[in-house]
Computed example of a mutant assay.
Amino acid sequence: MTRSAVSHEVHAPARPTMLYLVKQLELAVRARLDEVLRPVSITPPQYAALTVLERRSDLSTAELARNSFVTDQSAADMVASIEERGLVSRVPDPRDRRRRVLRLTDAGRELLDRVREQVEAVETAMLSPLTTDEHTDLRRYVTLCRSALSSTPPQ
């Protein structure tokens, strides 16, 4: 190749992909939640599990795993830990007495109530650069993106 055939174009640096930005946001949220939840000795996945059970009771451990973004094995370990602390209990399934399902206990509700304001403050800080309309749009866009990649609706 001759010297004159070499391109001297200046390329702008590549922008990070949306996947990268979403992961960076997840890591930033996780770090802030770690700080908020440390005083009550629960992890963000445990917090997620408790909030799932607050919204939707009587889930199996496998169902809780799917709704809490953890593997079945991780969910089993997590449930054992929060059950030992009295934050959840296993009860007979009202639809099938041979099965046991998980329910949030009063202690679990009290723990969620203790951290609710701090967790909401993390979300408020994250959304603070956005207008109310932009916040609504972001929620809609994130929900649409999630739906495009998953066959199960968000809980």
Rank of each mutant, 00 (worst) to 15 (best):
M78H: 02
A76D: 10
V101M: 04
P92Q: 13
S74N: 15
P94G: 08
V101G: 09
A80N: 08
S68Y: 00
P94I: 06
N67L: 03
L102C: 13
R90Q: 13
S81I: 08
A76S: 04
T71Q: 09
R98K: 03
S68I: 07
M78V: 04
S68C: 00
L104W: 07
S81E: 12
V70S: 10
S74R: 15
D93C: 09
E84I: 02
P92S: 15
R95W: 06
F69E: 14
D96W: 04
T105G: 10
L87D: 14
R99L: 07
S68G: 03
V91C: 10
F69M: 09
N67P: 14
N67V: 00
Q73L: 07
L64C: 02
S74E: 15
R99W: 06
R66A: 14
M78R: 04
R98L: 14
R98V: 11
Q73H: 11
F69G: 12
I82K: 13
F69P: 04
R90Y: 05
S89L: 00
V101W: 05
V91Q: 11
A80Y: 03
R97Q: 07
D96F: 03
S74D: 15
S81F: 02
V88A: 07
R97H: 12
M78Q: 07
L102D: 12
P94E: 11
R85H: 03
S89H: 06
N67T: 00
G86R: 04
V88L: 01
V70Y: 11
R66D: 13
V88T: 15
A107M: 11
L87F: 09
R95F: 03
A76R: 00
S74Y: 12
P94A: 05
M78C: 10
E84H: 04
V79Y: 02
L64I: 07
A65K: 13
D77H: 14
S81H: 10
A76G: 00
V88K: 12
M78I: 05
L104T: 14
A76L: 00
V70F: 08
E83C: 03
R66M: 05
T71S: 15
R97A: 07
R100Q: 15
R103W: 09
R97N: 11
A80H: 01
R98A: 03
D106E: 10
D72M: 04
R66Q: 11
D106Y: 10
L87K: 00
G86H: 02
R95G: 05
T105A: 12
A75M: 01
R100Y: 11
Q73C: 05
R90E: 14
A80L: 10
A75R: 01
S81N: 08
E84P: 10
V70G: 09
D93L: 05
P92F: 10
